[in-house]
Nucleic acid binder design. Structure first.
Lengths: 104, 104
DNA sequence: CTATTATGCAACTAATCGGTTGCAAATATA
DNA sequence: TATATTTGCAACCGATTAGTTGCATAATAG
């Protein structure tokens, strides 16, 4: 199934999973303890994150440690890049306004 | 209805709408011409974008011009900020690798 | 005034989503 | 070997999603 990074981060639970494993790799069971849902539900989220390569797995016996893959997050950053100039412009305009107020 | 910016940008059509009106404010009809769907479908996307304040409207007679609101996009940027250090670290490590290769 | 145009809203629909439970496979432990 | 643990997969379910069509409303044009 073709997965999209933007769709992957749309869900708050998935964003929380990303935030957790960004700190340290975790197993599905360990992750599930942080949420109010079943392990299987968490596993489904992990599967989606894996499919769009936001997450990588590392087998350790019967346990699987899931790692965060930061490079994939750059896709979002690159998309934002196009608009960053716009809100920075807006800030510059705000700066001008504040400057004008000060000069009065 | 409570809307989430992350959910709003999850849909590719909505991202395309944002990209279009970021260049210049547009009416729903004008927007719909860029897509392979009905005007009403586009209007529903606009509604979602408006609810989460990514888009603002300006009435001009019977026409409504929709504007992009860049400040709301900052929410996404701020969320990314937490992870930016991680992929920059990764780049630094890559730099080290390249440096070591050069020294050989 | 009448017709046309631009828009939003409501109702319906198929597909997807996020959740559940049950089960099978593989590894660790007693 | 027998049992417990960790995990993924499949089937099912209710809610949500993105799309459609039809219609009402308001502003413009003839």
């Amino acid at each position: 199934m073709r997965r999209d990074v933007f769709q992957a981060i749309a869900d708050p639970t998935r964003r929380a999973i990303i935030a957790l494993i960004a700190l340290q790799p975790m197993t599905p069971n360990a992750l599930a303890e942080h949420f109010d849902t079943s392990r299987q539900a968490v596993s489904k989220h992990i599967k989606i994150l894996t499919e769009c390569e936001l997450v990588r797995q590392q087998q350790a016996g019967r346990e699987i440690y899931y790692h965060f893959n930061p490079t994939k997050m750059k896709e979002i950053d690159q998309w934002l890049e196009k608009f960053r100039a716009l809100w920075e412009d807006r800030f510059n305009q705000l700066d001008d306004v504040l400057l004008n107020l000060q000069n009065k």
